Simulated assay, not measured.
Amino acid sequence: MATRAPKPPATQAAFVLHHYDWSETSLVLDLFSREQGRLAVVAKGAKRPYSQLRSVLLPFLRLQVTLSKPSKMNEDGAAEVQSLRGAEWVGGQTLPSGAALFSGYYVNELLLKFLPRQDSQPELFDAYATLLPLLQSGEDAQGALRAFELRLLATCGLLPDLSVLATTQAPIDPERLYMITPESGVTVPTHDAPQLTGQALIQLQAALMHGSLPALRQACESAGPALKPLLRALLHYHLGHRPLRTRQVLLDVQKLLT
């Protein structure tokens, strides 16, 4: 017999990842909540001119939301769609601009494509909440992005142990260069591809295991520019035939500017 999902809290912290029209006056929201993970929520009347929800149901704002009881349950006993009863901006991070806006939408798209619905991931939620103000301030934004990509891959079970060789499970040599293949893991380089030192990989794995976001950002910064294409290759492999739209938009904008 299927086990019913735990009863959701009366209010919970959440971010809007995406929304689209449901009717002339309402929206369907894709929320990322700390307690329940990614949720599909109907915001009835949110498009009306005098709705109090219009000014807060925006990406990148940390909200405290109140949801109704689900009107429908799937075969596993989990709620499929809920209605939004209330939402309040709790302050802090405001809407980013410029390059930070593109980066924010890129991260949102990663969450939409990689996370299943109603799978609570509080550590990833906290990593996302920490990332947004860093993108806005520009303070170590690239290191913060790489750290989030690593945390996302690890959370989804798509990141191998970075401290051992895939073929033998023997510890890697800190002084040697290695590559990461999506199919297996850390290997000795066999062709021209992004490579990292064993020391960098060991530091990344240690930071992931420790769970410290500042330590992970520092390890990403120390790894150098080779980490970005390496992680992008892993992400694109696991995305399969689902290309990232925000990434392509950014490339198109860069072409226009140059």
Rank of each mutant, 00 (worst) to 15 (best):
residue 186 V to I: 11
residue 167 T to C: 05
residue 95 L to I: 11
residue 229 P to V: 04
residue 56 V to T: 14
residue 134 L to G: 04
residue 250 L to V: 02
residue 145 L to S: 11
residue 128 Y to V: 07
residue 98 G to L: 04
residue 154 A to S: 09
residue 179 M to D: 01
residue 13 A to H: 04
residue 144 A to R: 02
residue 14 A to E: 03
residue 157 G to E: 12
residue 244 L to F: 06
residue 13 A to Q: 11
residue 70 P to F: 06
residue 226 A to G: 05
residue 238 H to D: 02
residue 50 Y to V: 14
residue 195 Q to A: 15
residue 178 Y to M: 11
residue 150 L to W: 03
residue 188 V to A: 15
residue 202 I to C: 06
residue 196 L to N: 13
residue 66 T to R: 07
residue 210 H to S: 14
residue 79 A to M: 05
residue 217 R to T: 14
residue 218 Q to S: 13
residue 224 G to D: 06
residue 254 Q to H: 13
residue 60 F to G: 12
residue 93 Q to A: 12
residue 139 E to Y: 00
residue 186 V to F: 08
residue 23 S to Y: 05
residue 138 G to R: 03
residue 103 S to R: 10
residue 117 R to S: 11
residue 189 P to S: 13
residue 199 Q to L: 13
residue 148 F to S: 01
residue 100 A to S: 14
residue 253 V to M: 14
residue 211 G to R: 01
residue 151 R to K: 13
residue 135 L to M: 11
residue 227 L to A: 11
residue 11 T to R: 08
residue 1 M to H: 14
residue 205 Q to N: 13
residue 22 W to S: 10
residue 117 R to V: 06
residue 91 G to S: 10
residue 93 Q to D: 11
residue 104 G to T: 10
residue 225 P to F: 10
residue 110 L to W: 02
residue 95 L to E: 13
residue 73 M to A: 10
residue 243 P to Y: 05
residue 52 Q to I: 09
residue 189 P to Y: 09
residue 88 E to L: 10
residue 247 R to D: 15
residue 159 L to R: 01
residue 141 A to Y: 06
residue 4 R to Q: 14
residue 79 A to C: 05
residue 155 T to Y: 01
residue 143 G to R: 02
residue 195 Q to M: 15
residue 250 L to T: 02
residue 19 H to M: 04
residue 72 K to A: 15
residue 176 R to P: 09
residue 51 S to T: 03
residue 71 S to I: 03
residue 87 A to M: 10
residue 61 L to D: 03
residue 39 L to N: 06
residue 76 D to M: 03
residue 198 G to D: 15
residue 110 L to T: 02
residue 3 T to F: 01
residue 168 T to Q: 13
residue 134 L to R: 14
residue 46 A to R: 09
residue 25 T to C: 13
residue 147 A to V: 06
residue 236 H to Y: 06
residue 188 V to P: 00
residue 122 P to Q: 09
residue 40 A to D: 14
residue 229 P to G: 10
residue 188 V to L: 14
residue 123 E to C: 04
residue 149 E to Q: 08
residue 204 L to M: 09
residue 125 F to Q: 05
residue 99 A to M: 12
residue 144 A to G: 08
residue 193 A to I: 09
residue 250 L to R: 01
residue 157 G to F: 05
residue 212 S to P: 07
residue 251 L to T: 08
residue 172 I to W: 04
residue 118 Q to T: 08
residue 227 L to Q: 06
residue 203 Q to H: 07
residue 65 V to H: 01
residue 194 P to H: 12
residue 25 T to H: 13
residue 208 L to F: 09
residue 47 K to H: 14
residue 240 G to Q: 04
residue 148 F to E: 02
